[in-house]
Nucleic acid binder design. Structure first.
Lengths: 224, 224
DNA sequence: GACATTAGTCACATTTTGTGACTAATTCAC
DNA sequence: GTGAATTAGTCACAAAATGTGACTAATGTC
């Protein structure tokens, strides 16, 4: 990532890097040296011969030291939404990391709660919103929630991650029933006592080999 | 759209333009003058100050004469998937048009059935697949099917569009029940007799003002 | 031992879905 | 005209999925 190279770059890759810490969804932002620029998403230009997604992964490694657990294209923006370094095109990616590997490598990089974002320009906010929407939108189809947790986790932890990402409470029995029907977790014979309360059994993510068939259109999910 | 300008362009916008004709999903492809290049998606570079989506809309207008009824970002590809004009980045959009306005403006532009595509390079095929996936993926959330039809349509026509896009048959009673529950169509007092069989009532797309609330996670739709 | 706390399960009412069979309105063949 | 064929539209009911409160289980705290 560079701090305003002041030359016309053909395009930039912005990455919204998300994690769940302390029961909150957080995003990693970069505080620019230029006071007017405030906070921006980590970004860089792709190197020659580099795939866009590979570039996004590289950016994640540069700022956090480890690879993202999930990454995906979130949007693309042209001239109208001008990038700080005058990039003509900005391609936005979303990435998620488990909370455990979420240590920023630079004092200018700070985790911010998504519910409580610092001052950003409108254009930057648009890109961040696109990245956030991509995470929420794909939550139903991709194992994003599992990537935010360590390999072994309790079902209560998993439920909490879904609640944070969806921004609403879920009913325990209902959550577990769906989970069981989907056959995507596998019980281990380990248990974890967390101080008070009954100890919880640990599970691991174990999707079936064959992909599950979908369910056709759901008009009730149509956005007007 | 240009025919291989043979200069290094920073990026290109490829547009997968889809329609339903004769009960088949079709995509508009451009036959290049260069015999080796075979068939490619309509494309161009964005003009200075032009938003990416606006550029995609312009490309649609250039090749078909009218605006797309629905358009959306489908993907972005870097160096690895090299573009014919050596673009460093290719941004792919999906667009759909009603079958009625689907007349190509150039003999090099030909509609092809998606189920029966002509010879394309692997890289071009990847972009087309991304565009097609975007249409199918958004079908559940966006009123794409309605944009493929004229303002007034019969429910059988609507069902047929969904069947073509989803690639599978739907049960009539079930389809109509979902449609009714979603409250997104409005009956008119017009009817249309199509030769034999009982005449069908005409409907129009009429989404509710307030957006409908979703339904939480559905693990059964998780892709492994 | 009583109680607070967290995990995990059950049961049942309610809603949603899949599906076959029915009725309705028209054209076509004779 | 009469009846078969064809397409539209509805109904009813079994099966499946979902929402939800209440229950049991295992631990720590006092």
């Amino acid at each position: 990532m560079r701090d305003r190279p002041f030359r016309r770059s053909p395009f930039a890759i912005d990455v919204g890097i998300f994690t769940v810490r302390n029961g909150q969804l957080e995003v990693l932002l970069w505080k620019t040296a230029d006071a007017r620029e405030k906070w921006i998403l980590p970004w860089d230009q792709p190197k020659p011969q580099e795939q866009l997604e590979a570039a996004a992964q590289r950016i994640v490694r540069e700022v956090i030291g480890s690879a993202a657990a999930w990454i995906e294209l979130a949007g693309a923006f042209g001239e109208g939404n001008r990038h700080p370094a005058d990039a003509e095109i900005s391609v936005a990616f979303s990435a998620v990391l488990p909370g455990t590997s979420a240590e920023a490598k630079d004092p200018q990089l700070v985790w911010h709660r998504v519910a409580d974002l610092p001052s950003m320009t409108q254009k930057r906010k648009t890109v961040l919103d696109a990245a956030l929407s991509a995470v929420r939108f794909r939550l139903e189809d991709s194992p994003i929630a599992f990537r935010l947790l360590p390999a072994l986790f309790t079902l209560s932890e998993l439920q909490k991650v879904y609640e944070v990402l969806l921004g609403k409470r879920l009913h325990k029995a209902s959550f577990r029933r769906s989970l069981h029907a989907a056959e995507i977790v596998e019980a281990t014979d380990e248990w974890r006592g967390e101080g008070r309360g009954r100890p919880a059994q640990l599970f691991r993510y174990a999707p079936p080999k064959k992909k599950r068939v979908g369910r056709g259109i759901r008009f009730d999910a149509l956005i007007a």
